[in-house]
């Protein structure tokens, strides 16, 4: 049963169909109200915390962009010394505050072994400032700083593999999740809170405005990311991948073609090649992580 209690109140200023808003609500349904939340700067923080119009029904703090993990470390240390270590601490931060500017602080939080669940809602660019690329922006995606042009196919680097970086820190619980599978997401959040040590959950969070799709398709797009193998959903405990969400792989085009940020791939000659590269990356995920329900089945790019 999903609890009815709303700890992430309506009336926030998220865009219609916002993935991170839906995710924040589900996270708090999983944690319940005995929780402290720290959110570094980002869309979620901005649309939920106008003075006196806070959406947070739980204790919540927004410090700065790059220090979510270190402020949360201080919160957790304080709870320990105050004899209140039974209150769990989570961070909910975007990809900019996590992959990029908050990376040092996150590494420190992992390395020091704090009992904190760090949840990154990954909408794959700086949406709050108007869709600039981050190191979480996927290959070939157009953003306002990686526009498609005569000399550009969009983002020219592959997405940083942050979950793998967390695993490399010997973080005992690392998981990826998707808005499309809310029970899985909530279970992972709940499970994380029982783990002794740092935990990291990466949640793929579609953005209708930044990715360019109809607001009704937020869940659909996040489902397609998973089903194409571009967003592997898994759990890694103590460095070992222990659970993988199995898919019947669909061609990456199904995911790409519904988004404006990949539109140029379908309207340009070089786009064809790029789609093949993206398909190859998805195939590699599928093989390496064993994502396919029917291993061995090849996914062909629809040439039409």
């Amino acid at each position: 049963m999903i609890p009815e209690q709303e700890l992430f109140a309506p009336g926030h200023n998220a865009c219609a169909g916002c993935g991170p808003a839906a995710i924040a609500r589900l996270i708090l349904k999983a944690t319940g109200d005995n929780i402290i939340v720290v959110s570094p700067t980002g869309c979620l923080e901005t649309f939920s915390s106008l003075y006196d119009l806070s959406s947070w029904e739980v204790p919540w703090m927004h410090p700065l962009f790059e220090n979510g993990a270190s402020v949360a470390s201080g919160v957790e240390a304080a709870l320990r010394i105050l004899g209140k270590a039974d209150i769990p601490v989570i961070v909910i931060g975007g990809d900019g505050g996590t992959y990029d500017i908050g990376m040092g602080a996150l590494s420190g939080m992992f390395e020091r072994g704090h009992r904190i669940t760090y949840i990154c809602y990954d909408n794959e660019a700086y949406m709050n400032t108007g869709v600039q690329r981050s190191s979480a922006t996927p290959y070939a995606a157009a953003t306002t700083t990686t526009p498609f042009g005569r000399r550009s196919i969009g983002e020219d680097r592959p997405k940083k593999n942050l979950a793998a970086i967390a695993i490399a820190h010997d973080v005992p619980y690392v998981a990826t999740a998707s808005l499309a599978y809310p029970r899985d997401l909530m279970n992972k959040v709940k499970k994380s809170l029982t783990v002794d040590g740092p935990r990291f959950i990466l949640v793929h969070s579609p953005c209708p405005v930044g990715w360019g799709f109809d607001s009704a398709l937020t869940v659909e797009v996040s489902r397609l990311a998973v089903q194409t193998g571009l967003m592997p959903v898994y759990e890694a405990e103590n460095g070992e991948i222990t659970k993988v969400f199995k898919i019947i792989p669909r061609p990456v085009e199904d995911f790409l073609k519904v988004q404006r940020r990949f539109k140029h791939l379908f309207t340009s000659e070089e786009g064809r090649e790029q789609i093949e590269l993206i398909q190859a990356a998805a195939n590699e995920n599928i093989t390496k992580m064993g994502l396919a329900k029917e291993p061995g089945r090849k996914v062909k790019v629809d040439a039409s």
């Binding site: 109140a9 009336g11 926030h12 106008l50 119009l53 806070s54 947070w56």
Partner: peptide, 23 residues
């Protein structure tokens, strides 16, 4: 309403912001 110390505010105030008219 007087402003509070350090812009600290109470929980769930966003419920005052009826977003239905966006629709």
């Amino acid at each position: 309403m007087k402003l509070n110390v350090g812009a600290v505010c109470g929980p769930g105030g966003s419920k005052k912001n009826k977003t239905g008219h966006w629709r």
